[in-house]
Simulated assay, not measured.
Amino acid sequence: MLIPYDQLSPATLAALIEEFISREGTDYGDHEISLETKSSQIHQQLCEGRIVISYDEHEETCTLIPHWQAMEHGLE
């Protein structure tokens, strides 16, 4: 199931984005990117629909995934 990002409270969305960033690692090449910058980039991708929020009913968890991956799994 997909959850529209604008249906979450700002605090919940920020926590979800921060958790996603921490899972993705911290190697950004030659330049380190701040959490604030990376959070802003992820939020922009959510607004553009390039990343979506997927909720797993069985595990009762949600995560950010690329839009193409949601389509591939029939979540659209």
Rank of each mutant, 00 (worst) to 15 (best):
55 Y>E: 03
45 Q>S: 09
29 G>Y: 14
36 E>A: 15
69 Q>L: 09
27 D>A: 14
39 S>W: 06
13 L>D: 01
33 I>R: 15
7 Q>I: 02
22 S>H: 10
25 G>Y: 12
9 S>A: 06
39 S>G: 10
65 I>N: 02
42 I>M: 08
54 S>D: 05
39 S>A: 12
29 G>Q: 11
29 G>A: 13
52 V>M: 03
26 T>N: 15
57 E>R: 14
76 E>P: 04
7 Q>N: 02
55 Y>C: 02
32 E>N: 11
74 G>F: 04
9 S>Y: 06
71 M>P: 00
52 V>W: 04
21 I>L: 10
73 H>A: 02
17 I>D: 03
63 T>K: 05
37 T>H: 13
32 E>I: 06
34 S>I: 08
54 S>Y: 13
18 E>H: 14
32 E>R: 14
10 P>V: 02
38 K>H: 13
57 E>S: 12
18 E>K: 14
23 R>L: 08
59 E>C: 04
13 L>V: 07
32 E>K: 13
32 E>A: 14
18 E>S: 15
66 P>T: 03
31 H>T: 14
37 T>M: 11
47 C>L: 03
9 S>I: 00
50 R>K: 12
45 Q>V: 02
61 T>F: 06
40 S>N: 11
6 D>W: 05
74 G>E: 01
43 H>C: 01
18 E>I: 12
28 Y>T: 15
41 Q>W: 12
66 P>R: 08
75 L>V: 03
55 Y>D: 01
76 E>H: 10
21 I>S: 11
75 L>K: 08
14 A>R: 11
54 S>L: 05
4 P>C: 00
54 S>I: 01
16 L>Q: 06
46 L>Q: 07
44 Q>N: 04
64 L>P: 02
64 L>G: 04
3 I>V: 07
66 P>G: 05
6 D>N: 05
14 A>Q: 10
4 P>N: 00
28 Y>G: 08
13 L>S: 05
60 E>R: 15
7 Q>L: 01
68 W>R: 06
14 A>N: 10
4 P>R: 02
57 E>T: 13
34 S>N: 13
44 Q>S: 05
75 L>Q: 09
29 G>V: 12
35 L>Q: 15
13 L>C: 06
47 C>W: 01
25 G>W: 11
76 E>T: 11
14 A>W: 02
43 H>D: 02
54 S>N: 09
70 A>G: 07
52 V>H: 06
54 S>P: 00
45 Q>L: 09
45 Q>W: 09
76 E>K: 10
70 A>Y: 10
52 V>Q: 07
12 T>P: 00
34 S>P: 06
26 T>L: 13
66 P>Y: 10
41 Q>L: 07
66 P>A: 07
16 L>H: 06
27 D>L: 13
61 T>E: 08
6 D>F: 07
